[in-house]
Simulated scan of single mutants.
Amino acid sequence: MSEPSSPAIAETSQPKAETARRPRNSAKTKASILAAARVEFADRGFEGARVDAIAERAEANKRLLYHYFGNKEELYRAVLLDAYQEIRRGERALSLDQYDPVQAMDRLVRFTFRHFLANPWFPRLLGTENIENARFLKTLPDIKALHSPLVGQIAAILERGAAAGIFRRDVDPVQLYISVAALGFFYVSNTATLSVIFERDLSSVGMVQEREAHAVQMVVDFLKTKPGA
Rank of each mutant, 00 (worst) to 15 (best):
T112I: 00
D142C: 07
D100R: 04
Q85S: 12
E212K: 02
A10E: 12
Y99T: 03
N133V: 15
R38C: 09
P23G: 07
G165S: 06
R50M: 11
H115F: 08
I131C: 03
Q209R: 13
F41C: 03
S195A: 08
D142W: 07
R57K: 10
I9N: 11
K144G: 09
E47A: 13
V188F: 02
V205Q: 12
A36F: 07
T12H: 07
L158W: 04
L223H: 04
W121S: 06
R107L: 04
E3I: 10
E210A: 14
V220G: 04
E56S: 10
M218G: 00
L183I: 00
R107P: 01
D52V: 14
T191P: 04
L140F: 01
L137D: 01
M207R: 09
A164N: 02
F113P: 00
D106T: 03
V174G: 01
A49N: 08
D100L: 04
L80C: 06
P227M: 13
V79K: 10
A213R: 10
L94Y: 03
D172N: 15
G152H: 09
Y177I: 01
K28M: 11
L81D: 15
E86I: 03
A163F: 00
L94E: 02
A53K: 12
T128L: 04
G127V: 03
Y76M: 13
S5L: 15
L223V: 05
P101C: 03
F41L: 09
A93N: 13
N71S: 12
K28P: 02
E132P: 03
F116D: 02
L81T: 13
A8G: 14
N71T: 11
A37G: 07
V196F: 05
A181P: 00
P120K: 06
S2P: 15
G184W: 00
L65V: 14
P101R: 02
E18K: 11
M218S: 03
N130S: 13
E47Q: 12
Y187A: 01
R57M: 02
S32Y: 00
S148A: 10
V39G: 05
I157P: 00
K138C: 00
L80P: 00
R92K: 12
V102Y: 02
A8V: 13
V205D: 12
V51I: 15
A83W: 05
T112W: 00
N130V: 13
A229E: 14
A162R: 09
A20W: 14
S195M: 09
L75P: 09
L81S: 14
L94P: 02
P23K: 12
L125F: 08
K16G: 05
E73S: 10
E74M: 12
E11H: 15
H67E: 07
A20L: 15
K72V: 07
R169I: 04
P23V: 05
N133P: 05
V216D: 01
F41K: 03
K72H: 15
F122I: 02
Q175W: 15
L176R: 01
N25V: 14
A10S: 07
Q98F: 06
P7T: 09
E40M: 08
V220S: 07
A31T: 05
R169V: 09
A37H: 04
